[in-house]
C-alpha cells in the first residue's frame, strides 16, 4: 500500500481548464475551473458558496437549485463552462443586500417551512419562480411548483403554508419579492 506518497508531478495538468466570467449574487467574478466541473462544484468549491447543497448529483432532489439568468435550475446538471457569462443567484444572495431575510425566507421561518433545512435552496427558488408569476397560487400550483424538490422532513405541508403566507405578505405589503436595495444616501 502507498503511505502518503507526496506527488511531484502536477497531477491534473492534463485536465482542460479555463477561466469563467460569472456574476454571482450581483458581483462579477472570474474563476478558474476545470471543464469537467459541475456548476454546483464551482459554486461550492471555488466560490465557497456552501448554501447550494448536493443531495444526489442526478437532477432529482433540487437541493442544488440556483437561479441562472433568472431561471431556477439544478446546478448539478450544468457543466461549469456552460455557465460562462451568466448571472447566478444562490441562496446566499436571495435576501436583501444589507443582510436579513426577504419576505419569502421570512415566511419559511415563521411557518416552519423546513426542519433540517437541506432542501431549502430548491424550495426557495422554486417558490420565487412561482410567486414571480402569481401572488395567488392555489395549493395545487404550489405543490406543482416544488415538485422538482424532495423534502424528507416536512411532508411538504408547511412548505405550502409558507409559500401561501409569503404570497399574501408580498401581495399585501409594499415589499416586492426581492426587496428594493437601499440606495446609499
Amino acid at each position: 500500500m502507498t503511505e502518503a506518497l507526496p506527488t511531484t508531478t502536477a497531477p491534473e495538468s492534463a485536465i482542460p481548464t479555463r477561466e469563467l466570467s460569472l456574476t454571482v449574487n450581483g458581483r462579477p467574478c472570474r474563476v478558474v475551473c476545470q471543464d469537467r466541473q459541475l456548476l454546483v462544484e464551482v459554486l461550492r468549491e471555488q466560490l465557497r458558496l456552501k448554501g447550494t447543497h448536493i443531495g444526489c448529483l442526478n437532477g432529482d432532489c433540487g437541493a442544488c437549485t440556483v437561479e441562472l439568468d433568472g431561471k431556477a435550475i439544478k446546478s448539478c446538471l450544468v457543466l461549469a463552462p456552460a455557465a460562462e457569462g451568466s448571472e447566478i443567484i444562490t441562496l446566499e444572495g436571495v435576501g436583501p443586500d444589507g443582510g436579513g431575510l426577504d419576505p419569502l425566507q421570512q415566511a419559511f421561518w415563521d411557518n416552519d417551512g423546513f426542519q433540517c433545512g437541506f432542501c431549502v435552496p430548491g424550495q426557495i427558488f422554486a417558490a420565487r419562480q412561482l410567486l414571480a408569476r402569481t401572488l395567488e397560487p392555489s395549493d395545487a400550483e404550489i405543490r406543482e411548483a416544488v415538485a422538482g424538490n424532495i423534502c424528507r422532513c416536512t411532508g411538504y405541508q408547511t412548505i405550502i403554508e409558507s409559500v401561501r403566507a409569503a404570497a399574501q405578505a408580498i401581495g399585501e405589503g409594499t415589499e416586492g419579492l426581492v426587496p428594493e436595495v437601499d440606495t446609499p444616501a
Binding site: 433540487g62 437549485t65 435550475i73 439544478k74 450544468v78 427558488f125 415538485a147 422538482g148
Partner: peptide, 9 residues
C-alpha cells in the same frame, strides 16, 4: 417529470 427546474433546463 422533475418540476419547473427540469422544464427550464
Amino acid at each position: 417529470t422533475g418540476g419547473p427546474q427540469i422544464r427550464n433546463q
